[in-house]
Design a protein around this nucleic acid. Structure first.
Lengths: 214, 214
DNA sequence: CTTTGTGCTAACAACAATGTTAATCAAAAC
DNA sequence: GTTTTGATTAACATTGTTGTTAGCACAAAG
């Protein structure tokens, strides 16, 4: 393998990366059927023949990107289960905030995944087993942490799966429904933009209250 | 206006309605760009020329359907604010359950609206004012009910807007993410299908706990 | 300096999707 | 019964989108 790359190879990596970036953005924004290869090429600043030169077909590139984003599905779900080394309260706070921050950093990801999984549910087949085993172990761990805390302190004996679903639901919704939520709240009082920070704190509070912690 | 319709008029209404139904289904399933007029016509059992005969263009019919579904946006949000004649606890229970049932009866509606509002946020412009005034009055009412209950009983002094967002988030998520949630929960134990009923109860509980009612 | 390989372009080909039109058929109006 | 009206069809026209190909430019290798 070459230590120095030729200029041609540099150029290749550049335009290939440019197309990939443009495609990712376009696909995440508009989904498979809404995205156009010509638009992607245009956004990348190359002729649309380059698209096919590097990635053969629209499907091939799309499936590559779907696979990539599907890999983030785990993170989109299980990052909400905090670090098991922390005491339960800190674990919950960290879990909710970490999860919220992940979604905030990938605000288009949820809608994209929901849409493309709805379009072809069999996309899940490949990661199903991985998902299940990961969910099982993480949830088992969280559940016993909750149960232990429930015995020692006054914490509620909650179902860890439900808590996880609560966190994911609460955190993802404002991003999936952003324009609508903005209309709803921005105009009632003038808190434009601060909604997300507000919501992040609120969700932490909601989950803590649900578990009756503190 | 005729009391009896001619057979031609009957036929017209039939195929027009058939196309409309097929289009609604197709659009809700696949969105604007994913839906094909030929597929709609085929599903309605007519030639695709009929599509244009009755509805001129794909856009026109789509906008009609979007407007219709956007009309349901209010219900999708504010049905969660229960009847103000009831005591707070019953009001919350009724609100959450009524809202959940509405989403369950229109499971494709949220994704459709989120997508098409994201594609063209200006779609909201038309109903913005209506939304705001309705939100204001309904939320004001709910807020004072909460505040009153907080003074009399031990109920928490919660922000009605946040409570509304919580309910919508929790109730809508399982439908928007259905295949994923099913994988996550179905395989952990064998509760296939019962997830939604489970979730409905859980959401009621969560909101009641949040308000510290009962 | 020639040859080879490769990124790149422009033009074209193929197909799918939207939209149109002229002609047909049957029921309703007269 | 003739005419008219409107639903319906098949065929066509158009455009947008995807994918291909022949050739050019230019750096690297010999």
């Amino acid at each position: 393998m070459p230590v120095y790359m030729t200029e041609q190879q540099n150029a290749q990596r550049d335009t290939e990366a440019l197309i990939l970036q443009a495609a990712e953005k376009e696909f995440l924004e508009k989904g498979y059927s809404g995205a156009k290869t010509t638009t992607i090429a245009e956004a990348a600043g190359v002729t649309h023949a380059m698209f096919h030169y590097y990635f053969r077909t629209k499907d091939k590139l799309f499936e590559k990107i779907v696979a990539d984003k599907l890999g983030k599905l785990m993170e989109m779900m299980f990052s909400a289960i905090g670090n098991s080394d922390l005491p339960l309260k800190e674990r919950i706070v960290q879990g909710v905030e970490r999860h919220f921050d992940f979604v905030a950093a990938n605000p288009l990801l949820p809608r994209f995944i929901f849409n493309e999984v709805h379009n072809r549910p069999e996309r899940l087949d490949g990661i199903k087993n991985n998902m299940i085993s990961m969910a099982t172990s993480l949830l088992d761990n969280l559940q016993s942490a909750i149960d232990k805390d429930a015995s020692i302190n006054k914490c509620r004996h909650a179902d860890a799966r439900m808590v996880l679903l609560d966190i994911i639901s609460l955190n993802i919704f404002p991003f999936v429904a952003q324009p609508i939520v903005n209309v709803l709240l921005d105009s009632i009082d003038g808190n434009s933009g601060s909604l997300l920070e507000m919501r992040k704190k609120e969700n932490v509070k909601t989950i803590l209250e649900k578990l009756n912690i503190e």
